[in-house]
Structure formats: C-alpha cells, structure tokens
Design a protein around this nucleic acid. Structure first.
Lengths: 106, 106
DNA sequence: TGACTACTTGGCTATTTTTGCAAATAGTCT
DNA sequence: AGACTATTTGCAAAAATAGCCAAGTAGTCA
C-alpha cells in the first residue's frame, strides 16, 4: 500500500523546514545547546529578521522550541534524532560524490 | 566550530530533493522495490513528464539510480538509511501534533 | 518616562520551484 | 520502414521561497 498523500505532506513539512543551508547551519549550531537569535544571525551571516523567519519555520515544523529570558529568545532543538538524520544525508553525499568521480574518470 | 556553509549547502541539496510530497511518495513506493516511471506517475497522480523531472532531481541528489530495460526506465533507491530518516521525521510530527493538541486544550 | 536592545512582522522584489502541454528521443514489434 | 509505447526535454505560466528594509512590540535600565 502506498504512502498516503496526507502523510507525505506531513513529512514534507518537516523536511522542507530543513531544506535550506542557513537553517541547516542553525540546527547544527543548536546541537551544542540553545542560542539566541542574534547569535544565530552571526553564525549564518544574514539579517536578523531573515533568521527570525527561518526560526519561525523551524518552530512551526516542530523542530525547535523557544524560551524568552530577559531580552533574548533562546531557541533549542526539540528532537534528538537529527544527528542520525544528518548522518544519513552525509552518507548519501559521500556515496554520490564517489560515484560522480568514478563516472568522470571513465 | 560551526558547520561550514559549503557542507550545509551539500546537505541542503539532498534534503531539498526530498522536500516535496510527490517525491516522498515516490521514495516510499521505491522502498518495496524498483518501479518504472509510469508506475510512479500512477502512485502520485501526476503527469509522467512531471514525475520524470522529480526523478531526475532525486537522481542528481544521489538518492536513486536507473536502469533501462526495454522501453522502461527502472528506478531504485540507492540508500538503505532512508527508512530511519523518515522514522525521525514521523517522530517529529507525532511529538509536534501532541504538543499542538495540548496547546489548544489549554 | 525615555533611551536602548532583542526580536518579530509587514511589505516588496527577486529568485527558485513546480507543473502540464507539446515536441523530441529511444526502444519494440510487425 | 512505420506504428506504437515509455520516457525525457523545452517552454511558459503559476506558486512558493528568500531576502532586506522599515516599522512595530516587548523587556531592561537609568
């Protein structure tokens, strides 16, 4: 039985939220602990308003949570499985770049 | 040390290739074995040309490989880790929908 | 209260992605 | 060769994303 469209849409919402280099860098930064928006803006080198929108996306996908302390909003990862998720992605890239090199050498 | 931009871009290429409901349905269908383009078009309910383009994307990201036999192009998954990848995604969705319900009940 | 800092939101433009139709390509079969 | 099937490619329109600036909100601190 094929995966239903609605389940595919739910998966896509989460995956889309990770489908941007800046958001991937932000998540990677959050793997070592919570960060406020301006720290993440520093990490990715973008306008704070842009970073804030990226974070809103990650939040609505359920990947991060926020806590306000003083003037700052501290974002943190909600889900411990992302490390293995990225391992899988990196593995695909390694395999793929190898097969690309082999194809070019041919 | 933060994740470099170039590594984040590489990860994003793979993740983007999965960031669409139709492509997710296609990958799910391929989990039970190879499929030709017209079978996958049936699964997602889209024009075959559209499906062909989705598949080209998955291929260039290194997720699938193709083999031509007769008139058909048979696509298959290149990477066994996708199941756990989607488990992680589904887990995020479950956690998130629970917290959404809790927020609404409040 | 007023100045200041951290952040979010609105608005706008630019870019990227998605889609189907039509045309081109490639293999099969008589 | 000619008809037929499966797939890919070119094109153009529509939709979704990303980015920045400016303006608004909220907490802090003198």
């Amino acid at each position: 039985m094929p995966l239903s469209r609605s389940k595919a849409v739910l998966r896509a919402q989460v995956i889309k939220s990770l489908a941007h280099p800046s958001r991937i860098q932000m998540v990677a930064a959050l793997e070592s602990g919570e960060r406020c928006v301006c720290e993440l803006a520093e990490v990715v080198g973008a306008d704070m308003s842009t970073v804030s929108k990226h974070l809103a996306l990650l939040k609505s996908a359920g990947l991060v949570s926020v806590e306000k302390r003083g003037l700052n909003q501290y974002y943190r990862l909600k889900c411990p499985c992302l490390a293995s998720f990225f391992d899988c992605v990196d593995g695909i890239n390694e395999t793929h770049s190898k097969s690309m090199r082999a194809a070019c050498a041919r």
